[in-house]
Write a protein that binds this DNA or RNA. Structure first.
Lengths: 343, 343
DNA sequence: CATGAAAATTGGAACGTTTCAACATAGCGA
DNA sequence: TCGCTATGTTGAAACGTTCCAATTTTCATG
């Protein structure tokens, strides 16, 4: 079955291609009668004009950028997308969002889609599991396709907008130590995120810079998806005696922290009276919780905005620009899920 | 400044267009030396191949659909998007998401973008404020561009996947009446959503089918964005005496309900002891709240999946299909934010 | 009815790639 | 040295639109 083209419509309607084109584009040079007739034929043949061919002739008319995030339902990422959207809109760009849902193949597929569709550039939250599934990023470089990464990826020179996870976690842990906690645990995130590893490093470093000693069992990998972290958290606490509980937990992110809070409620462990909890990201919903979460605030909106700014600068530059790397500051926000240890 | 084309690269590199094309596409018919050289020239000229031209020659290679939601940070919509994504992926389609953020102009712009980029079809959560800002939908129809709406839009024949808001709200209100409530109020949503109007209607009808009488002041429009609803809710309760409080509130959606809960906490009004609260949508985060929200569960995932199914059927059909309209059932989920009125 | 202006229509070039048959070259064995 | 392959490279046609100068048709007017 062949694609229906403007030519088929023209032939069937007994007019020229030019006229059909004029109808499609709503030009007022067409007699009402002719227009009607052509529209009918279009409908009859179920003719769908090929956007691609229209664009080709017209040159660059649309300005658009794409974002590939990891998890469409995690507000951290959608807020970044909204920040990017704000800046992009102010420059006349449209923004389309796409989510890899932690699947490498999807990430690859979407970078391809973007360049194939002439989306002018991309902001990518890259999956960095293991070593080198970054073939597709090299391909983008070959095509001189502008992109900005939201996490550093080893082995590739590229624009990056990131946050200083190590510094952020260190600050949180040091605070907990200051207010008297010694039995502190880090619930770590999924292995395919560079955030996970950086946060673990920060946790370690905080200890090595304190009088306390770090032990391997202070790092517990429980994931960040709700069901998973909820289950793991339940199991973690159930499998040990009350006196072996940590007095403070630093969570990988707020989503995980909410799962942990849910588990603790289930177990009748009070926050912050029995255990202090620190989140990470400062997502919107964590603020609404009746015990508002102490957390590390990542400037999500700002991350998106900055990434869009760099991206658009690169898109609009006629010459290749040297890669930029921006590290944004986090804030440590003390709310009500942490409190000094009673001694 | 002219666009750099493959021809420029070829000329500068002293080879033919065909060879440059072969390099770009990683064909192994090119001598390593030649490849290097061409790549260098590409970089030097900052040559970005035009995806559009590549697609034109190749015909239909990509399968992709787009979704336009209203609010990227509201989980109700992202969950729908994930449902659509699941089905679409199973059929080999990519999915790009876009958000109108309640702006008509954005909605229009994105429908245009999708058809211009040959995204094969769209799922649209339409803004239906007032009467007829639906020019762009008619344009899509003219282009025989396949789309599915997530709310009914008056005046246009189209595929729709929706939920029965009226029935759903009636069920909730009747339940509240059954368990003894008489002073019930509906906090209504923003005017540009058809959900708002349908839910108001449902509320009214529940009363007209009960012994109780409906009064206009039972409908209070407080919006659904957090800051706005939070502020309005605070003001609502502050501006009247305790004995005039409703004993139950039916909220427009869960996001609004969470804002109301926050306001009530602020005012030391207990839920459900002083006031029962019913949400709507059953978003993920409302479940985590320590007083899990009684709510009307919209089958978000299913909505997305069904919409994608209809959309793809239309995309793949060579002939125009008659519009389909699907209404999905909601569940009324009783959790802990409602309780019988003590008498 | 002839005329000229206005309105409507036509058709070929152009957009920037890919494709592929044809051609050129290099390397090798006899 | 001469074929013969295998390997590289070329260049014109094709993809499906839009554009626009040229042409035809319509219509009002005297």
């Amino acid at each position: 079955m062949q694609r229906v083209t403007i030519e088929d419509v023209a032939r069937r309607a007994g007019v020229s291609k030019g006229t059909v084109s004029a109808v499609i584009n709503g030009r007022n040079t067409v007699r009402a009668e002719t227009r009607e007739h052509v529209l009918n034929v279009m409908k009859e043949l179920n003719f769908r004009p090929r956007g691609v061919a229209r664009n080709l002739k017209n040159g660059e008319l649309d300005k658009s950028i794409g974002i590939i995030i990891k998890d469409l339902s995690y507000p951290f990422y959608t807020t970044i997308a909204l920040g990017a959207r704000e800046y992009a809109n102010s420059k006349g760009y449209s923004v389309v969002v796409t989510s890899s849902e932690n699947d490498h193949e999807c990430e690859r597929k979407y970078t391809h889609l973007f360049s194939a569709k002439d989306i002018k550039g991309a902001i990518i939250a890259p999956l960095v599991e293991g070593t080198a599934e970054i073939e597709h990023l090299f391909k983008l470089k070959m095509l001189n396709y502008p992109f900005v990464l939201l996490e550093d990826v080893k082995g590739i020179q590229a624009n990056v907008v990131a946050i200083d996870n190590i510094k952020a976690i260190k600050k949180a842990v040091k605070y907990l130590i200051e207010i008297g906690h010694t039995k502190i645990v880090h619930f770590a995130g999924p292995p395919q995120s560079s955030h996970t590893h950086e946060r673990i490093d920060g946790f370690r470093q905080a200890f090595s810079e304190s009088p306390l000693v770090f032990r391997e069992d202070m790092i517990v990998s429980i994931g960040s998806r709700h069901e998973e972290s909820y289950g793991n958290a339940l199991q973690y606490f159930r499998s040990r005696n009350r006196e072996d509980y940590p007095t403070a937990v630093v969570c990988f992110n707020d989503q995980q922290a909410l799962a942990v809070l849910t588990a603790l409620r289930e177990l009748n462990i009070r926050v912050p009276d029995d255990i202090s909890i620190v989140g990470n990201d400062d997502i919107y919903y964590a603020r609404l919780y009746p015990v508002p979460l102490t957390t590390i605030r990542a400037p999500q909106y700002e991350i998106g905005r900055k990434a869009a700014e760099i991206l658009i600068r690169n898109i609009e530059s006629p010459t290749a620009l040297p890669p930029e790397k921006v590290v944004l500051e986090t804030d440590f926000i003390i709310r009500e899920s942490t409190k000094p240890l009673r001694t």
